[in-house]
Design a protein around this nucleic acid. Structure first.
Lengths: 330, 330
DNA sequence: TTGTATGCGTTATCAC
DNA sequence: GTGATAACGCATACAA
């Protein structure tokens, strides 16, 4: 049986209500006794009973994160960053990898104070829930019940193309990414790329749009190999994700082409790992640490200020220039 | 304010203790009243207060899983399987991706009934904890405090080589894997391979042992490319993991070699995905579902039968013959 | 078969 | 400043 405030009270020679106050650093208790109590508590190895605390306080200080597609690697860096970010606050995080309804159910039982949901999947429509829920995903009309943090893929693509075209002079630009229509984020990227090209009055050769049908390294590798079979090479490639771009680099080198001299490449996803690739990769996207910070800030705000209106927070993608893009040769 | 058993009692016209019994399906309450109460409870949308339940029962029915290296993909399939397995029981699972001490601390606060720890890292020595803890990892002398479920890499390698040599006649066998000495599991595989070769009296050409220095697809790809630069090819390759083997396949095909006619390949890791690769891959290892089942069974046993002695459970790897190995040409 | 009383460990509201 | 005491929502031994 673990030690309770009553045990402490007994050996400290005070009442247990005083112990409670001391433990909560209440100003209503004399510093000397407070210190004495604290000392005793430490000596006895006191650990507050979480269940009892929450029973009376109605608060858990736990945030649940739902990540149903754990086997999709891409988000693990974001999870790590969110976890670190939450550790700076009084809250803790628990993770559920079960399907959304089961996760929601479990978190209801745990009585978490709030929930973060990674919503990659287009066909999941969630009903309003009682407790605060924040979605990380694409802001559109479908999901109207919850605040959303949206990394703004469209603008990211606009800036990628802007950099490639306006700054470096590229016009023959290809996009290699996953066109899967079950993943809203991927769809946004593709849509954003097309829109950006149009915006700058650039046309896209049909074979410059390559569907990797996946998000893994070899998907990018296969895709770029296919792209380069055609003798009409692009001068720049936009890669849809970190892993895909890794494969793209390899595939290009395989063909004895130089990056960035023969082909420039810019990748979506703004994570530090980009700097450690074969060739430090110029990338576009909301920096993962800022993304994590915003997500955590939002859910906590939502928890502590429950009357917040549903809202959309579109983040601002940033361009990270490294060594994979060059000016087009005239 | 949510509905409690007292509310139910009031409108069902019974005492709240009767409600409690009915809700817990006690035989001490008449079926008719039980049904009436259950009906009322459902109508009122009753949800038991978890905190109150655990306060009185001293049980949480939650199992914590510590997975500090979330960014290492390999285990996500296992996590999914464990999650599914736990869902068949009265327990729930929560996941922590924080470093081990922080995770342990958090789980202590949550008062989880038990903890599963993925221990990939050699230099973490854990002290005895108060609550049941099960380690998934390598059983050796270092970790002597806790029961361990060990997938028995050594025997897996023995069987892989046995199959390649005794059944198919290969003698020129290479091993491609991660030699990192910070990951005990990888070390075991390498050690196991060497031991197996020795056991069958087979020698290993120095360049047949390739360190991928990583566990990703392209690590395997790079490694096999290096291996095949040497004109002295092996007739069979043992791949250290699912991802690595994926890269190996690609690298071999790249060289216009046929699998399995020119080179046989067998991969560690026994997960269903092996069947869906470019070439359905013959693999060795404890099937991931059995592994998950054993892990879950063990931790629950540990929880419910607390006086269990520290013990080691070495699992039995299974050979899954698919289409990537062939008899050696005489 | 049902109801009453008690306690789980805490916090909070009072008195003293 | 400090100490009783009443909640919080539930399970359970015991009484009816």
């Amino acid at each position: 049986m673990s030690v309770t405030i009553k045990d402490i009270a007994k050996i400290a020679g005070v009442s247990y209500s005083t112990v409670s106050k001391a433990l909560n650093d209440s100003p209503l208790v004399k510093p000397t006794t407070k210190n004495r109590i604290l000392k005793v508590a430490k000596e006895m190895g006191y650990e507050p009973n979480f269940a009892a605390q929450r029973l009376v306080s109605k608060q858990t200080k736990i945030i649940g994160l739902i990540w149903p597609t754990i086997e999709r690697v891409v988000l693990s860096t974001l999870v790590t960053n969110i976890s670190n970010e939450i550790r700076k606050t009084p809250y803790s995080m628990i993770l559920s990898v079960e399907p959304i309804p089961a996760s929601l159910e479990a978190f209801k039982r745990f009585q978490v104070d709030g929930v973060i949901l990674f919503d990659e999947n287009i066909d999941i429509l969630i009903e309003p829930t009682t407790r605060p829920l924040l979605v990380y995903g694409v802001a559109d009309k479908v999901n109207k019940y919850f605040p959303i943090v949206d990394p703004n893929h469209e603008q990211a693509m606009l800036e990628a193309v802007n950099y490639l075209y306006s700054d470096l002079g590229h016009t023959k630009i290809a996009y290699i990414g996953d066109f899967s229509n079950s993943d809203r984020m991927q769809m946004e990227k593709l849509k954003g790329f097309k829109k950006a090209m149009k915006h700058f009055g650039l046309s896209i050769a049909p074979h410059f749009l390559i569907d990797t049908k996946g998000l893994d390294w070899y998907d990018g590798y296969n895709a770029v190999s296919k792209l380069l079979e055609n003798s009409n090479h692009p001068t720049a490639i936009v890669g849809g994700s970190y892993d895909i771009s890794g494969g793209i680099i390899r595939g290009i080198k395989e063909k004895k082409l130089q990056i960035p001299n023969d082909i420039s490449i810019i990748s979506y996803d703004n994570i530090p790992q980009m700097a450690n690739m074969e060739i430090p990769l110029t990338s576009i996207g909301v920096p993962v640490d800022k993304l994590a910070a915003e997500i955590v800030r939002s859910i906590i705000e939502l928890i502590e200020n429950k009357n917040l209106h549903p809202s959309i927070r579109k983040m601002t993608p940033e361009l990270n220039i490294r060594k994979s893009c060059a000016t087009i040769k005239k």
